[in-house]
């Protein structure tokens, strides 16, 4: 299968407590492009190099966290097939008509064993990346790439229980690969699982948490580890709360910095990592190397990284 099923994380809907502060964070600071505000007040963003209309949706609410996330699939027939496979797996699937979600074709929605609401869709209006499609060149006009210089939404990490059931769902129904996992050395129990539907080290991950349906972070792809350092400069300049300063993950080998939006939702900017193929064996880390698995440049686990979620 050459990327003809589930394509990528295409939309994450995040709750914020103060939209004005959130717009400054996601727009002015991170440099995402604000695309529209709908009649319920939700604000929609895209990263510059995404062709689809939006990938981040912000909703003002009295508690932070994630409402739902959505993966884009290759075509409508894939949606039909996956609906049948999901029901055969035992999940209840809700159909959502085209247009209910702005700029979007029909969707299907279901709840994962970890408690998260997930959607799939095949169509979203494409607006391009400003370069055009014929002789596009390579660099957009000044000001299109800005802020933290985010190229695109990359992945998300969610907290909850039943990780092995999630793995079974993503591998059996969605044809993901289990790229890596972190297990308890004594019991062998899964503590975190990293799943890929592409050549990236992960497209979604789940971490074991005592509560269902928790949001750990949404991650954005930068072009290079150098851009991660430049993002860190901006994060320091604007006093954005940092969870973990520039480092490299053992899992995925990605260069990273973790920070929080003004409502306490964790964000990551991320670059590099290895190339994954469907025949790449699953890499396993255990709790003897928890420090290196999480942050490989100082081999030090962070309590806040493992316990602070929204």
């Amino acid at each position: 299968m050459a990327l003809r099923g589930v394509l990528r994380a295409g939309e994450v809907a995040i709750r914020v407590m103060d939209m004005k502060a959130a717009r400054q964070h996601y727009g002015d600071r991170m440099g995402l492009h604000e695309m529209m505000t709908d009649d319920t007040g939700r604000v929609y963003y895209k990263a510059w190099d995404e062709h689809d209309h939006h990938s981040i949706v912000l909703r003002e609410a009295d508690s932070p966290g994630m409402d739902y996330f959505a993966f884009k699939v290759f075509d409508d027939a894939t949606l039909t097939t996956l609906e049948q496979k999901l029901e055969a797996f035992g999940l209840q699937v809700e159909r959502i008509e085209a247009g209910v979600y702005p700029k979007s074709g029909r969707r299907i929605q279901f709840v994962l064993p970890s408690g998260h609401t997930m959607q799939l869709y095949a169509h979203k209006e494409q607006v391009g990346n400003t370069l055009g499609l014929v002789n596009p060149g390579v660099v957009p006009d000044e000001g299109v790439i800005r802020g933290f210089r985010i190229n695109r939404l990359d992945h998300l990490l969610l907290g909850g229980g039943h990780l092995d059931e999630n793995v079974r769902l993503f591998t059996e129904v969605f044809d993901f690969d289990l790229g890596e996992k972190l297990v308890d050395h004594e019991s062998g129990a899964s503590l975190a699982v990293f799943l890929s539907c592409s050549t990236k080290p992960h497209d979604i991950a789940f971490v074991l948490q005592p509560q269902q349906n928790k949001f750990h972070h949404v991650s954005f792809l930068l072009e290079s580890a150098h851009d991660v350092i430049k993002a860190a400069d901006m994060i320091g300049k604007y006093r954005i709360p940092v969870d973990v300063g520039p480092n490299r993950h053992g899992v995925t080998r990605g260069a990273t910095i973790y920070f929080f939006d003004p409502s306490g939702n964790r964000n990551e900017v991320f670059a590099e990592g290895y190339v994954h193929y469907p025949d790449t064996p699953t890499l396993v880390w255990d709790t003897r190397e928890l420090g290196q698995a999480t942050f490989s440049q100082d081999n030090t686990p962070r309590e806040s990284f493992l316990t602070v979620l929204t």
Partner: peptide, 10 residues
């Protein structure tokens, strides 16, 4: 010291 945004509750 968690999220420092009133979100995580620690």
């Amino acid at each position: 010291v968690g999220c420092r945004g009133g979100g995580c509750g620690v």
